[in-house]
Structures are given as C-alpha cells and as structure tokens.
Nucleic acid binder design. Sequence first.
DNA 1: GTTAGCACTCAGTGTTCACGAGTGCTAAAA
DNA 2: TTTTAGCACTCGTGAACACTGAGTGCTAAC
Lengths: 341, 341
Amino acid sequence: MLTERQKQILKAIIEEYIVHAEPVGSRTISKREDIGYSAATIRNEMADLEELGFVEQPHTSAGRIPSQMGYRFYVDYLMGPQRLERADLFQVRELFTSQMDAVELTIQQTVSILSRLTNYTSIILGPEAIHNKLKHLQVIPLNERSAVAIVVSDNGHVDQRRFTVPDGVSLSSIEKLVNILNAKLSGVPLVRLKRNVYQELFAELDRHVEQYEFLLGVIDQMLAADTDGRIFTSGTTNILTQPEFNDVTQVKALMDLFEQTDTVTKLFATNDLGVHVRIGEENSIATVNNCSIVTASFSIDGRSLGTVGVLGPTRMDYNKVVSLMQVLTTDLSEHLRHLYK
Amino acid sequence: MLTERQKQILKAIIEEYIVHAEPVGSRTISKREDIGYSAATIRNEMADLEELGFVEQPHTSAGRIPSQMGYRFYVDYLMGPQRLERADLFQVRELFTSQMDAVELTIQQTVSILSRLTNYTSIILGPEAIHNKLKHLQVIPLNERSAVAIVVSDNGHVDQRRFTVPDGVSLSSIEKLVNILNAKLSGVPLVRLKRNVYQELFAELDRHVEQYEFLLGVIDQMLAADTDGRIFTSGTTNILTQPEFNDVTQVKALMDLFEQTDTVTKLFATNDLGVHVRIGEENSIATVNNCSIVTASFSIDGRSLGTVGVLGPTRMDYNKVVSLMQVLTTDLSEHLRHLYK
DNA sequence: GTTAGCACTCAGTGTTCACGAGTGCTAAAA
DNA sequence: TTTTAGCACTCGTGAACACTGAGTGCTAAC
C-alpha cells in the first residue's frame, strides 16, 4: 500500500500533468504549496512510485507522467471531494430551469453544454424510443401510389416514414386498418407493437394478411431507423485542441469512429446507474486507447433511459468531469421525468 | 493569349500537380508521353507561364505549382472532354435505379456516394421544404398540458414539434381549429401558410384570436427549424487525407466551419443551373481560401430545388468532380421529379 | 526554334555541439 | 533514521553547419 506521502505526491503529479500535459519534475512538485518536501525527497518517492507502476518516465532525465494505473488509483482513491465551479453549476441549473418542451431539444442542449463546460467531446445515447408507448398511428396519403406513415409515442417523439403503396392494396383499406390499430393499440409499448399487431390482426382482420405484412414492414423499418438516430454529439472538434492530438492520422481515426454509430454505441453504452470512468486501454477499442471515457446513465424511477458520455485524453480533468456528470444526469433525469409526466 | 504549346504545358503541370501535390519540374513534364519537347524547352515556356501568372515557384530552385489563375484557366479552357470512369458512372446509375421512397433518404445516399467517389467532402443543401405544399396538419394531444403538432407536406416531408398548451386554452378547441385549417389550407405552399392562416381565421374564427396567435407561433418555429436542418454532409473527414491539410489548427477551423449552418449555406448556395467552380480566394470565406468548391443545383422544371457541393483542396481533380456533378444533379433531379410526381 | 551543358540556388537531411531540465546517488545535516 | 544539498550523468532540444540533389536560368551549339 502507498504511504500518505506517496499518495500526496502521486496526486500532485497527476494534477500538474492534467493541466500542463508535460512530464512533471521533482522541483515542480516540491514548489507546490501543499507539499513540504525538497526536490530530492520527491525524487526518491518518485523512483518508488515508478517501481510500483503508478508513474512512468518517457526517457531518462525527463519528469514523470502518470501511468494508466496511476490515473485509475487517482480516480478511485485520490480525487478530492467533487465540487463544481459556481459558474458552471449556474449554467447547468439555468439550462434546466428554462422551458424545453421536446425531448430531443433537451438532449441536444444538454450535450452541448456538457462539451462547452468540459472542452471535451460529449455524447448522449438515448433515450430509447423503443420503451415509449404508442400514442397515435397515422397514415397520410400523398397520392395514389405513396403515403406517409407516422407514429407518435406518448413522450411526444414522432417517427415517420414515406412508403410506396404496393400494387393491389388500396389506400382506403390501409386507412381502415390503421383506424382499427389505433383503437386497439394505443398505449402499447413500441417494442411490443409487432407482437400485438399480430394478435389484433389475426383476431379481427385475418383476410387482409398481405396488407398487414406490408404495413408491419414499414413500421419495423421506422422503429429500426429510430434506434440509429439516437446519438447526439457535441464538440467533436474539441479533442483537436488537446496537444496529444497533433497527429492528423490519429484525429481522422477518431473522427471516423464517431461516424460509426454501432461502435459509438458499444463504446458508451452502460446500464448501471452512477458515473463510470474507463481509462486508456480499459476501453475495448484500440482507437481510443489513449483516451478516457466517462459515462453516466440517466434514468426515471431507477430505469435507465440512456447514457451521457465524455471523451477526452487520458490526461482528463476527472474531478471536474465526474462532478459535472453527476449534476447533469440528476438534473436531466428530473427534467425528463417532468416531460414524460 | 497563350500559344498552343503553352496551353499544353500548363495542362500537363496542373494534371501532374493534381495527382502528386508536389511542385512539378521541367524534366517530369518532358518525360510525359503527350509532350515531345526537351526539359530545356519546357523550362523556357515555364518561365513565360510564370511571368504571365499561371504558375508559381515556391522558391527559386523548385518546380512550378499552378496559381489560382492557372486553375481558373484550366477549368475554363483546358479541361478535357468530361468523361466519367465507367465504374463510377455505374455506381451512380445503380443508386438511382434502386427504390428510394423518402426524399431525405435519396439525398443522404446521393451525398454519400458523391463523397465516396470523389474522396472530398460533399454536401447537399435543400430541397427547401418551404416550397412544399401543405398536405395535412395535425395536433395530437399527449396529456392535458402538452401536445405534438405535425405538418405533412405534399412531398412526404414531415415536420413536428411538441409544445405546451398555454393556460386558458383547451385541447379540444385547438383540435377544432386544426380541423378547420385542414379543410381550408390543404394545398397551400408552406411559405404562404402564415398569411393564409390569418385570412381564414379572421373570416371564420375571429373570436379565438389568442389561440390562433399561439398555434401560429408553433407552426412558425417548426418551419424555421426546418430550414436549418436542411444540410446533408458526407465525408467530412476526407479532407484529412489530403496532404495540404496536415496542420491540425487548419483542420479544426474547417471542421468548425461545417458546424455553422449559416456559413455553410452562404458558401454553397447557388441558384443558377449548371456546374460552378470557385477556386481558392474566389470563395468569400477566409477559412477556405486554399480550397475549391464545386457546386451545382438540382431542379425540377427549371426551378432550383437545392444545391450539391464538393469541397476539396484547390488542387482538386476538377475534371472528375465536374463530370460527376453533372451526371449526379441530372439523375437526382430526375429521381426527385418522380418522387414529387 | 530547339536542345545540351553548366553554373547556381535552395529545401531537406544529417551531424555536431552546447544547453538545460531532470535524474540518481552519495554524503552531510537534522 | 529521515531529509536534504551537491554533483555527475543522461538525454531531448535547438542552433549552426555542411552536404546532397532536384530544379532552374542562361549560353552556346545544333
């Protein structure tokens, strides 16, 4: 186990490195107000910390930089009491006291304020529309051959999809079908829509099977497209200001990663409540092995609705990010609870 | 005026530079099959071309690179007969023969194939939903306090917006209002919606002014948000592969530019039919002074619907891009004509 | 009018060198 | 026994310098 002094020094090294992004020397540490030891003493302790694997030396005669293990220890045990700057907290509170009707808008604003306050790239997954309940289903004909299907869910989310009416199916019969479905399926969770459509239709309309198959396909595609479009990002270019991303090829890899929705989902998804920090190689994807990802899910009544995430260099201001995320997910959950009513 | 040989040499210089991105020397040119002169001759002609301003020398003992004026001359007079690679043409044709119902999907696929085939960043503005006509207006109540307004236009585009019902306004009265509007305003272009709402309401419902003001606000916001969301991009990171963008700060400036919708609109908007090329400083915005932008609008019956654009380095494969754009806008216009019917 | 030859220029590369930040170790001080 | 001062050593950084080679401009010959 580390001695108190070692912890103190490790904490100082990490905090210096987070700010300046350069190897930290013994003199720098000894000059800090909270450290009362000479450079030589620090050097001895640093050598020990290196042997234990908490810090690394890029080359002989350079200062130390925290290792992945060092960051992990810092996040788990050393990080001070998490407190937000008054100004930051004010901005968050202001955001959520303002009137935001639409769920999408709320999310977009949240992710935007998160990236602005952290200067890292931020992302929100969800909330998953699939948990919503059907409020209204409607088909609006555009001409003889095509129409638009619209699904409104109880939280006000609207999905829509244009489709071409297949030969042999009249628009009026589709409308009749939709009316029946509306009457029967209002309040059904979207995820169960498919199964319930089956049940209702077999009971009531078994002679129109071909039409129902077709409409089902349209609805399916609509809901499938919806899970894709549920990623909100902001400040993607913020990582470019970090000195560790001077290399254009690395930047490109990262940017491209953000365009692959499935990878992003895999990278950020969590279901646990509370804030999670994944440092460097703890991330499964090689492109972000020199990045850290902080995630936290937001929820209503203990049920996770989606995930808020921040991506930055391993040298991330963990304290700030973690405390910001705590406040933000709490407030966001609360705000959404009002919207969902 | 340039002699035939000078034109031939200028063309060769530009085509070499487009491929290799490095100053072109006299020897390189003289070794080309289509040039039958020695390096010394080329050198003399190059000196003349430089004096005339068509090429530049980064430093005394380097080869020549085309100047902005050189590119302009190339685009206007030298670029050979535009012909697409068979494989590229095939991909475009295949895209448009496939069934694509939704306008949005068509546009997204088009912009995506454009960036894939050119390896530059591509963008599509429009089509402007504001020209569409109202097909159906609907308000779906979610609970006592909030509802979703949905506007469906004749091309199948759906706008939607959630709103909170103000105190003193009952949902049922809103519904009544919407029914009247639907009956009266179907087929009215969205851009005229506001004015016509006034007329209809004053004629029929002048006692419910406060409700109408409110709903009008919702519709207005909806249509306003719509003009923002009409930018489709693809391959934003493609510029990162170009050697002239090794500088991270430049990349960031460009990326950030793409997130400002109004700037992007200003940069790419054209109403003229036909392909336009803006080279380097011909672009109004300083960030893209070392880029070229090729735009072309797509249209139905001579009326411009929107703009397709490609952004790349001034050293762009103009021939390929221009010919691709010609084919693409023609096919896109045709396809949209079918969709709008 | 065209080309071969030659002197000249200059970015890029590699080498050397001095500098300084930082270390590890030893011995003295507390 | 713990802490600190001192000193030799390491190694990255940046400046100075020479060398190389691609490319030019000019002149004279074809």
